[in-house]
Structure formats: structure tokens, C-alpha cells
């Protein structure tokens, strides 16, 4: 069908060729990790979420190659893997920055200043939601409630906590990230890259010295009740805010400015041929397979 349609000059969309494989050395290394992950579960399919974190740790996002790898080691179709990879928000579908800066804009953080922080960071970095700075360092996005409401407003960087933020503190933080200065969260370990974070999520413990101990037992807000119960004076939480935010006219965001990231269908790596897997050869060089029943649908190919 495709041949005849292209002969007629009618573009009905070519079925996409199978994803290229990882280079042999990468594949061998990932297979060793994959075996360790699969061994944790009574049923191998349970390893799919950690395996997707693993392939994300290799390439920084979940590529078609990564999904093919997961399908191969688990005996699944690429359709089954793609269905899962596109369901969860932590799997990125395109190349992104070394540092994922997520501003909580769920109600409580938004009201406490998260909206203002997100607004000012977009302006400061010159990027919109889900976009990456030109230097490839910072990907900015708004995120949902991250279970730290007593530290609002909260910003997460590579899923470490930056509590009690202001527009000023957040801008300083992204400037430091872009300048390569070391940045530490208020709760969590000194930042590693997004890829290194993804490897921890795949279930491989952070081996860095001091990473587990960093920032102590509990954040200040976590201790407020305990201190009161022990008869210590009500402790006002000390916010690491630095100077007051600069005096700007209050911004009144229209509701339309906060668009849910699920409002529009997102491209998947599979449907995004302009962003092929960075560690592998161009798609056209891979050996074509006559048919890939699990491959993307025809309308995505065009």
C-alpha cells in the first residue's frame, strides 16, 4: 500500500522503521543492569518502570531505542512499552536539560507564590513550560503537589527539594546551575545530573559520599510540632529567602496562562523524528524490518 501510494505521489505516511539498537557495548552494560532489576520481582514485567528510568539515565529521555530495549529484555511489544512510557509524567519524551527545574503550581504552592516564581523564571530564562535553555542546562516546567506543602512554595530540581522559595532565590539558583556552580537543595543531596538521578530511580543507590546524610535528619517545618511538644518555644520556620523580592507591579495571571501540561497531546519519542536517539545512528541506517506490528501508526510517520 505504501509503495503504491508513494508511486502515485500521495503521501499516506510511511510506517516508521524499527528503532536502531544501542551500540553493542552500551547494550551489554544495560543488559547487566536490567538483569539486576528484573531479579527484584517475581514477574519480569514489574521491572518495566525501573527499566524506563534506566534507559532515561542513558540518554536523558526515553527514546524509541530505549523502549525497544525494554521490550526486548522483557519480551513485550514496543506498543506495550510505549503505552506505559507515555502514561507517566516523569519519563521525558524529548531531549532536555541537565537540570529539571519544576515549580509546584498546585493550589497551595501557587497561592503562596509558586505562580509568581514560575512566571519570573520563565521570563528570566526566556523559556516556556517544558522548554530548555539554549545552553542545555535547565529545563523549566510546572509540577503538581510534591508532598512538601509545609515548605511552600516549593521548587524541585532533579527531584531534590528546594523549600520556601522566592522568585529571587529561584533565579539565583538557576543562574548558579547555568554557571556550573555547585547547588545544594534544602532537603536532599548536592545536585547530580538528570541522568544520574534517573539511575537512582531505577533502583541503583547513590554511591556518592555524604549523599544520604546531606541536609540532616529533617527539615525545620517537620520539627515544629515536636519542638512544641518538648516545651520549646514555637519555632518560626526560618526561610532561606535572602533579600525580599524586588518590587514589581503585582502580576495578575489570567487563568489561561496556567495550562495543564496534559492539555495538548505531547509528542512521544516515537512520533518525534526530529529528535532521534542521540547515542545511536540515524534511523535510515538501521536495517529495515519488513513489518513492525508494534510500530507507530501511519499517521504519525508523516
Amino acid at each position: 500500500m505504501t509503495t503504491s501510494s508513494s508511486e502515485r505521489g500521495v503521501s499516506l505516511g510511511m510506517p516508521e522503521l524499527p528503532a536502531p539498537a544501542y551500540p553493542d557495548d552500551v547494550r551489554a552494560r544495560l543488559e547487566t543492569d536490567a538483569r539486576e532489576i528484573i531479579a527484584r520481582y517475581p514477574d519480569s514485567r514489574s521491572a518495566l518502570l525501573p527499566l524506563l528510568h534506566l534507559v532515561q539515565s542513558e540518554e536523558g529521555h526515553v527514546t524509541r531505542t530505549g523502549m525497544q530495549f525494554c521490550a526486548d529484555v522483557l519480551g513485550l511489544t514496543t506498543a506495550e512499552v510505549t503505552a506505559v512510557a507515555t502514561f507517566y509524567t516523569m519519563y521525558r519524551r524529548r531531549p532536555s536539560g541537565d537540570y529539571q527545574v519544576g515549580v509546584c503550581t498546585n493550589t497551595l504552592c501557587a497561592v503562596m507564590g509558586g505562580d509568581a516564581i514560575f512566571e519570573e523564571l520563565q521570563e528570566h530564562l526566556g523559556v516556556g513550560n517544558g522548554e530548555t535553555t539554549d545552553d542545555g542546562k535547565v529545563t523549566l516546567e510546572h509540577i503538581e503537589c510534591n508532598a512538601a506543602c509545609d515548605f511552600a512554595p516549593v521548587v524541585m530540581v532533579n527531584w531534590e527539594f528546594f523549600d520556601n522559595q522566592t522568585p529571587e532565590s529561584a533565579k539565583r539558583m538557576v543562574d548558579d546551575l547555568r554557571a556550573g556552580r555547585p547547588v545544594s537543595p534544602t532537603r536532599g543531596a548536592p545536585l547530580c545530573t538528570f541522568k544520574e538521578t534517573a539511575r537512582i530511580l531505577a533502583g541503583f543507590p547513590d554511591e556518592r559520599e555524604g549523599a544520604v546524610e546531606a541536609t540532616g535528619s529533617a527539615g525545620p517545618a517537620s520539627l515544629v510540632g515536636l519542638k512544641l511538644a518538648k516545651g520549646e518555644a514555637p519555632a518560626r520556620v526560618v526561610h532561606p529567602r535572602g533579600e525580599a523580592p524586588r518590587d514589581t507591579a503585582p502580576h495578575e495571571p489570567s487563568p489561561a496562562e496556567h495550562l495543564s501540561s496534559h492539555d495538548a497531546p505531547q509528542d512521544t519519542a516515537a512520533s518525534d523524528p526530529s529528535h532521534p536517539s542521540p547515542t545511536t545512528a540515524r534511523e535510515g541506517e538501521a536495517a529495515p524490518r519488513p513489518s513492525d506490528p508494534a510500530g507507530p501508526t501511519a499517521e504519525e510517520g508523516e
Binding site: L108, V111, M112, D150, A221, S222, V224, A235, R236, V237
Partner: peptide, 9 residues
């Protein structure tokens, strides 16, 4: 949490 003097647990 929220507009309280001492948010926390």
C-alpha cells in the same frame, strides 16, 4: 500548611 504562622508536622 498555608497561611499559618508555623506550618509543619
Amino acid at each position: 500548611s498555608g497561611h499559618v504562622a508555623s506550618p509543619g508536622q
